[in-house]
Amino acid sequence: MSSEEALAIIVSLAAAALLAVVAVGQGLVPVASTDLTPLARFYLLNVYNGSSQLWGASPEVITSILWDYRGLDTVYETAVFFLAIIATLTLFRDAKLLPETAGSGRGMTVIVKTVTRITFVTIPIIAASIALHGHLTPGGGFQGGAAFGVAPLLLITAFSLRLAAERGWSKGKLLTVRTAGLLAIGLIAVSTPYIIAALGGKAGIGYVMQNQPKAWAEVGWPYAIAYAGMRVLFSGTLLFLNLAELFAVSAGLALVFTVIAMPTEVLEKGGGVKK
């Protein structure tokens, strides 16, 4: 054992001992303060409080903040992500995804392929569960879409891009899904007065990205439906926004992974990339 290794071991042991002393000295309590800030107290008091004027109709505070209290912020965030993907596509604008030019199509060994077949099925299920429970448990559309993004990556790495191209993937189709998702978010953002009018209520003036009615803007989405004797909570716009975001993000990530996985010659021929 060299002297450097001995030194490294001594330093790590000393750090561990210090950590233990600190933990025991504190009585093993969290180091951060457990007091809530006024802002946190406001959200916790209002977000699932039906008697409050400022409620979000969802027990999940973070989703409520992201899609309701500061929903415009998230719409812009989605738009920025969309622009980033458009920029990637502009860079490789004429690179076409065709089976003949999408590599050898050999993929990895049979071991990897078999395991991928088993795990592949679970990815969309988990993505849908994260996105559709976004208004009840931690998670949401973006997280579900990011989880779903693993599926095309796994398919391309384990099986090859050529298989994806043969099965009918194209940049245009993925971009259509991506744009439809963003369009749905935009429509939901301005939909609240129209939804109320369609349900037979008194149409009024609402805000952009309004979820529940307020005293000064009395329109809002319904937040639950009765089904088979149970009350199913869907928190107004939150479920639909999560669903639209799931489609937008998963198609966007699939698009980027597809473009990145194309052979270099195709990208060089079809884009502004020079050797």
Partner: peptide
Amino acid sequence: FFVLITAPAGSHAIAR
């Protein structure tokens, strides 16, 4: 279960 089936495939892919 998933760790059991994915870990060998992963190390196999790395070794390959």
